[in-house]
């Protein structure tokens, strides 16, 4: 009874936040509602026992997305004008949104209350995967090709972001060059937090082999902390043509691919024999964390641009 009351309250607040984010004219208000929405979504994930997802959502939804959207808002200002729409566009949007929402709702409530799922199969094979956390086992072993392709997708997205750099911006540092008052609140905070953030990020990667955590969650935390030091003006983002940067970016997918190819000797692509599964996964996780963190930082900072004179 109380549990249901809690769940329903969370869902009502989630829907209110989403509604407030899509209605009204004030873009800033919509962004703030979206940040709160990301927070509530991680609470929702905890209620359906998906701690791994909640971790990723907490780091991305409450951390990186807010920085990305607020930064975009700050740079766009009044330049973001409305496109010209046909008459009755609101009505069409309303009908389509309500119609598709209702259809999905109808489908969800009609689902049988017990789904077969794949939990039993995953748990039965968990020992062979080399790790104790079923989610990590799926991510890096059972469905490793998903994760391998995803790490490559991240790189493609980064190439996409860099490719919209202006002619004069290429080869410069990504995003704006930030500055802050020397010794001020922002700078002190930016000096203090990364020390703890590094420990927490590493801890989450390490925890991922036995409990909730892993490369994506830890990498996102590290990325958020790195962005804070850049926002505080303590560190300048490296120039996009820096050689070590390029190497570090391809290192994660590269090592993953390499280990996957080594699997060919043991039988098939991406197959880890049980004896080496644990060290192989840990090695992949470490380099993947670094690559993911770096890629996310660069994605959030945006294309390289010329420093203002």
């Amino acid at each position: 009874m109380i549990a249901s009351g809690f769940d329903i309250t969370v869902c009502v607040l989630l829907c209110l936040c989403a509604l407030a984010a899509v209605t009204g004219r004030d873009t800033f208000r919509a962004i703030v509602f979206f940040i709160v929405y990301g927070l509530l979504i991680s609470v929702a994930w905890l209620r359906i026992d998906a701690i791994d997802v909640a971790l990723a959502e907490a780091a991305i939804g409450a951390g990186l997305t807010g920085v990305l959207l607020l930064g975009a808002f700050g740079q766009m200002g009044s330049a973001d004008t409305m496109a010209r729409e046909p008459r009755g566009a609101v009505l069409i949007a309303l009908v389509a949104g309500a119609g598709i929402g209702a259809a999905v709702l109808f489908a969800v409530q009609g689902l049988p209350p017990e789904g077969a799922g794949l939990t039993a199969e995953v748990l039965a094979q968990l020992e062979a995967s080399g790790v104790g956390n079923p989610v990590t086992a799926v991510l890096l072993n059972f469905r490793g090709y998903d994760t391998l392709l995803e790490s490559i997708v991240l790189l493609v997205a980064l190439i996409g972001v860099w490719s919209v750099a202006s002619e004069t911006g290429w080869g410069e540092r990504p995003g704006i060059v930030h500055h802050a008052r020397a010794g001020g609140t922002l700078q002190s905070f930016g000096r203090f937090l990364p020390a703890i953030g590094l420990v927490i990020g590493a801890y989450i990667v390490w925890a991922g082999s036995s409990g909730p955590g892993g490369a994506f969650q830890g990498g996102t935390v590290l990325a958020a902390v790195a962005i804070l030091t850049i926002l505080a003006g303590l560190v300048d983002a490296p120039r996009v043509t820096t050689r070590w940067l390029r190497w570090a970016l391809v290192m994660g997918p590269g090592v993953f691919l390499g280990v996957a190819l080594l699997g060919l000797f043991g039988g098939a692509f991406l197959v880890f024999p049980q004896a080496v599964a644990y060290p192989a996964i840990v090695a992949i996780e470490i380099v993947l964390t670094a690559s993911i963190a770096l890629t996310l930082v660069l994605l959030v900072l945006g294309p390289p641009r010329e420093a203002p004179q």
Binding site: T185, L186, I196
Partner: peptide, 16 residues
């Protein structure tokens, strides 16, 4: 402790 530090920092920054 982390929440307190964050709250102190944001209060100062937003007020300013």
């Amino acid at each position: 402790a982390l929440a307190m530090i964050a709250a102190g920092t944001t209060a100062q920054l937003i007020a300013r």
